[in-house]
Design a binder for these strands. Structure first.
Length: 508
RNA sequence: GGCCCUGUAGCUCAGUGGCAGAGCACCCGCCUUUUAAGCGGAGUGUCGUAGGUUCGAAUCCUACCAGGGUCACCA
């Protein structure tokens, strides 16, 4: 139940006064001939050659009042639409009584949406403005937005005075955050462009964009705990997907050579600056390529997204220079770990011995982890934070990679890489396992290593094996959290700043 | 879940045991080319919530709520 504060009560009273005068505070009909930016552009285009004609340009503009300078019998308002801001000059002599009454009786406030008609002009102070003849209210704002004043310095830079920075309020009331923070609006425009660039890339490469179930009777394709929900009529528990992998690879059995999906994954685990409960994943699978070719595709599509976002392959992310120019560094996991901490994990084929030597290097580790998890932990502790430039870490332990083909040089590793940037894990790819007998053995191996209820539990998916037995072409597959890519390309420190509505606790 | 920090006006913040404060916003008055407009007047409040200590609590203590950071967990 809304409990209006003093400021809000004042605005409600203004609405009541307007309505008592027969003025609609929320009228149905609106007119607009120009956006704010278009009105200014039309004037500036004509002014140098024919300033008289420029002064005659008739416009009707709409927007939200962002600054009001009421000077008695003249008023200057800045209104803002998505294109930008334009100033209105409202002079009592030049307007009908009803239009100016809104100003004179202070019935409009900052944040109201208004419409103004008049001719373009340049004020004595030099600002291109709409010299308003008619002025009307389009929508009253009952709750004031946070006040941010802008000052344009001589060199043209805009300084903002007053801020809206409280993170909880900004995330819970994203609408208010967006309404007052233009740079936040820009982040989400750029996010849209990045995702569109990714789609365009894969469309142009001949991939088919598909949609697979979000509600799944069995989850899989990644090591994560799922959310569980329930279908009432069927009396069936369902999982929210943790990956798209197994459904997408079934499509290769079906005869599509290359598919991708850009959609939401859900993982029931902790949140952090780089984890949100639900996040946007890109996965693609392509027949007749291996993980080396997947890496080359990755370099190309990330570069395309970077160009679309910033027009350059060199970015600054939180003070770190990052260069997306292909080719990126490739190094085996074994070599990367040996370089970073001097441990050759192949010297310690038993988990207990590997755990002991990790501890001897003063790296903390949870006791009793399986061998493959120890290797992964070592990578995360010793190597990952230093992987600033885009880097492919090649050849992962088979024990923690149930969907990747073995390498040809030993039985311990598989053809899998993970790609890192800015010290963050960004992507994961394999030469996909397509031998149903091997796949079944991997499922059974996983069941031995990870018990039911473990975070890493990989349930055996009989239908996936059935699909694979019809014959699956050799293929390379890929998955990447797109939010993290957007973080890099928009220079945002937290995943919450690239999600319009990040996950928060219940509001009390 | 552990630990640390934070919560005071619409916004951003100061106040750390003795009258609840500042800037901007809002309100009243003046102002017909302003632009962080200006001048004059007015402080608008559940000091996150509930207890406790104290003559006296925004301030100290406890619990809780919310947020952030970090660790654990985890693409």
């Amino acid at each position: 139940m809304w409990q209006p504060n003093k400021l809000e009560k004042e605005r409600v009273e203004k609405v009541e006064r307007l309505e008592a005068q027969g003025v609609e505070a929320f009228p149905r009909r609106v007119q607009r001939t120009h956006t704010c930016a278009a009105a200014i552009a039309a004037y500036e285009a004509l002014e140098p050659t024919d300033s008289e004609a420029a002064q005659g340009i008739e416009v009707t503009v709409c927007g939200r009042i962002r600054r009001a300078n009421l000077k008695g019998k003249i008023a200057f308002l800045h209104i803002e639409d998505e294109s930008g801001r334009v100033q209105l000059m409202l002079r009592v002599n030049d307007m009908d009584e009803a239009s100016f009454a809104l100003i004179g009786e202070k019935l409009v406030d900052n944040d109201d949406f208004v419409q103004a008609s008049g001719t373009m002009m340049r004020t004595k102070a030099g600002e291109v403005s709409v010299h308003a003849r008619e002025f009307r209210l389009l929508a009253k704002s009952l709750s004031p937005l946070p006040v941010i004043k802008q000052q344009t310095l001589d060199d043209g830079t805009v300084v903002e005075h007053g801020e809206f920075t409280d993170v909880e309020s900004r995330y819970r009331q994203r609408y208010a955050d967006l309404a007052v923070n233009a740079d936040v609006r820009d982040v989400f425009r750029k996010r849209a462009r990045i995702l569109k660039a990714v789609r365009n890339f894969f469309d142009d490469e001949g991939f088919l964009e598909v949609e697979t179930p979000i509600l799944q009777p069995l989850y899989g394709g990644a090591a994560a705990r799922p959310f569980i929900t329930h279908h009432n009529q069927l009396d069936q528990d369902l999982f929210l997907r943790i990956s798209f992998e197994l459904y997408l690879k079934r499509l290769l059995v079906g005869g599509y050579d290359a598919v991708y999906e850009l959609g939401r994954d859900f993982r029931n685990e902790g949140v952090s600056f780089k984890h949100n409960t639900e996040f946007t994943m890109l996965e693609f699978y392509k027949a007749y390529i291996d993980y080396h070719e997947v890496a080359r595709l990755t370099e190309r599509f990330v570069a395309a997204a970077a160009m679309e976002a910033n027009g350059t392959l060199q970015i600054n992310y939180q003070g770190k220079a990052i260069d997306f120019t292909p080719p990126w560094k490739r190094i085996t996991m074994r070599e990367a770990i040996r370089e970073a901490c001097g441990i050759d994990y192949m010297d310690y084929p038993e988990a207990a011995a590997l755990e002991a030597v990790i501890r001897a290097k003063k790296i903390e580790v949870k006791p009793g982890l399986p061998w493959g998890k120890l290797v992964e932990h070592l990578l995360g502790e010793a190597v990952e934070p230093n992987l600033i430039q885009p880097t492919f870490i090649m050849d992962y332990p088979r024990q923690i990679s149930p969907f990747a083909k073995r390498v040809d040089y030993d039985d311990t590793h598989v053809e899998r890489w993970e790609m890192y940037m800015a010290g963050m894990e960004m992507a994961n790819a394999f030469t996909e396992l397509n031998d149903p007998r091997d796949q079944e053995a991997r499922f059974l191996d996983m069941a031995k290593v990870f018990r039911e209820g473990d975070d890493d539990e990989v349930p055996l998916d009989e239908d996936y094996l059935r699909a694979m037995r019809y014959g699956m072409p050799p293929n390379g597959g890929f998955g990447m959290g797109m939010d993290r890519l957007v973080m890099l390309l928009t220079n945002q420190r937290s995943i919450r700043d690239v999600l319009l509505y990040p996950h928060l606790r219940h509001e009390k």
